[in-house]
Design a protein around this nucleic acid. Structure first.
Length: 513
RNA sequence: GGCGCAUUCGUCUAGGGGCCUAGGACGCCGCCCUCUCACGGCGGUAACAUCGGUUCGAAUCCGAUAUGCGCUGCCA
């Protein structure tokens, strides 16, 4: 029998990283076993579900490279793929369960039930539904229905215990008495989650249910339904939950909870994807650069540790830096151009640099609001794109995330400017004026504009001027960029171009007069 | 309250009775390299939740306890 798995997010918001991980694992499991991966939208609660959320979920999955074999946009034998479109199927199964005596109508009102719950709580007892309506006679049921009393449908939980296996845990055993007859159809006729999932999974012929461990407690109820239906029970794998560094559920405070926020900081999707996989698993550096195909072949979901994992932004960033360092020049250049375009850098380098100075997260926040407002990003000019690519090898080992490029190399894209602090630093650098003037003259005269020629020239300066080497470098660095941290000095001067480099050094020299 | 799941350095983990005076990675600290910042190299810091048992021997097996999380809904 071939493997069929499903990922079933509810479209009540964007795709949370934890859910993204669940989707990924399902996808990998399906591919690894040559199975089918179904994407199902759990929108049984239409009041909280939006089409926009569905679109976002789909785009996040696609960005990670996850493709489904059946689901929205990809018709197949197990459709439809939105629960709101499957009500007819639920109806049919409810009728079946009714006919086989597994369901019964219940006339208890929410108020009555709440009172029972309160009482149980006051007596410090576990509350389960009393089963009062289970004993109602057929004629009484008919009479009450005819009288227009609202009723729900409950599942008749049999005595005994329910046991299920989990691919990464010990078997879980639950006493059925603790479950209590639960509602499967609301008084408005709509179907409750626990029944809907089972009917969906049965009709979609799902063989492996891979989902978050917050569903462990629901599983026994669902198994009871499988058994009532006479359907084969699938295998379960309940994944550990993903928390923030404070052991709480991931939230905005943790920097990012969705993929788009992470990529807006300049984290690469493939790195995020790999990171999500290696959480809860032994980590090996070689995995940083794994492709989706590598994951399919070598990543085994069943090796997951069952304990919850904490999302560690530091390690993610470190992985991202490692990934960047192994990219070749063209690749990095391309990625930088795409990224810088997205954050609006080419439209207004100065403004974006200001935001970026507050850190990648501030930048990501700005990008998010720009994207929410559908503000189009300015494409780079040919010169800007070219310059970015030229700079790629100069900045590679200084980047952890792509956003780091901006404070580091933003000065290449705008006129030279000095903060008060930078001006003071320059003024306080011994021999700065002489260094700048001399370097400008030498650079203007150097016959070939190459990094090697520039280096040779600059290295002459200390002896020539009687200024310490460190001071020479500091003066030139400050002079060409207005900042104390830049890519390599010779390479930077070279990348600026002869005219620009000379002009900047002269401008800086004038500042000291 | 009841039930369930989980529990090795701050974090992710290796470990499935002797190879463990517990290994790796991130972080942090120090040193080296060095034109700044980094990269890289080297070294250091730091953990078997607790208490009992089983055993010649336990991080590994068993039992309690504690803590965290989840479920306990006419939410999913």
């Amino acid at each position: 029998m071939s493997v069929i798995v499903r990922f079933a997010p509810s479209p009540t918001g964007y795709l949370h990283l934890g859910s993204a991980r669940t989707g990924l694992y399902n996808y990998l499991y399906a591919r690894r076993h040559g199975g089918t991966f179904i994407l199902r939208i759990e929108d049984t609660d239409p009041s909280r579900s939006t089409d926009e959320a569905i679109a976002q979920i789909i785009s996040s999955l696609k960005e990670m490279g996850i493709e489904w074999d059946e689901g929205p946009g990809v018709p197949g034998p197990h459709g439809p793929y939105r629960q709101t479109e499957r009500t007819g199927i639920y109806r049919e199964y409810v009728d079946r369960l009714l006919a086989s005596g597994h369901l019964y109508p219940c006339f208890c009102t929410p108020q009555e039930l709440e009172a029972e719950r309160q009482k149980a709580r006051a007596e410090k007892r576990n509350w389960v539904y009393s089963g009062k309506c289970r004993r109602l006679g057929a004629d009484e049921v008919a009479r009450r229905k005819a009288a227009g009393e609202p009723w729900t449908l409950r599942f008749k939980v049999p005595p005994g215990t329910t046991v299920f296996e989990d691919m990464i845990r010990e078997p879980v055993e639950v006493d059925n008495d603790l479950i209590g007859d639960f509602i499967v159809q609301r008084s408005d006729g709509s179907i409750v989650y626990n029944l809907a999932v089972v009917v969906d999974d049965v009709t979609m012929e799902v063989t492996h249910v891979i989902r978050g461990d917050d569903h462990i407690s629901n599983t026994p109820k669902q198994i009871l339904i499988y058994e009532a239906l006479g359907a084969p029970v699938p295998k379960f794998l309940h994944m550990p939950l993903l928390f923030g560094t404070d052991r709480k559920k991931l939230s905005k405070r943790h920097g990012a909870t969705k993929l788009e926020q992470l990529t807006a900081q300049g984290l690469l999707v493939e790195v995020v994807r790999n990171y999500l996989c290696f959480l809860s698993t032994e980590f090996d550096e070689s995995m940083i650069t794994w492709t989706l195909e590598d994951l399919v072949r070598d990543f085994d979901v069943e090796r997951l540790s069952p304990s919850p994992s904490i999302f560690d932004p530091d390690k993610l960033r470190w992985m991202n830096g490692r990934f960047i360092r192994q990219m070749d020049d063209d690749e990095l250049g391309e990625r930088l151009v795409v990224y810088l375009t997205r954050v609006g850098f080419y439209g207004d380098p100065v403004a974006v640099e200001q935001v970026a100075a507050e850190g990648p997260q501030a930048l990501a926040a700005a990008v998010e609001s720009a994207e929410a407002a559908h503000r189009p990003a300015t494409e780079p000019t040919a010169e800007q794109a070219e310059l970015t690519k030229t700079l790629a090898p100069l900045v590679r080992e200084k980047l952890e995330v792509l956003a780091d490029f901006i404070p580091l190399a933003g000065f290449f894209f705008r006129p030279l400017a000095f903060s008060d602090e930078a001006r003071e630093r320059l003024a306080g650098t011994p021999g700065a004026a002489a260094t700048l003037t001399q370097a400008a003259a030498d650079l203007r005269a150097v016959e070939s504009w190459t990094v090697a020629a520039i280096e040779a020239l600059v290295r002459e300066l200390p002896a020539q001027l009687g200024v310490k080497r460190k001071a020479v470098f500091a003066a030139l660095r400050l002079g060409m960029s207005g900042q104390t941290v830049t890519p390599g000095l010779f390479e930077s001067l070279w990348a600026l171009g002869r005219d620009e480099a000379v002009a900047r050094l002269e401008q800086a020299a004038r500042l000291l007069d």
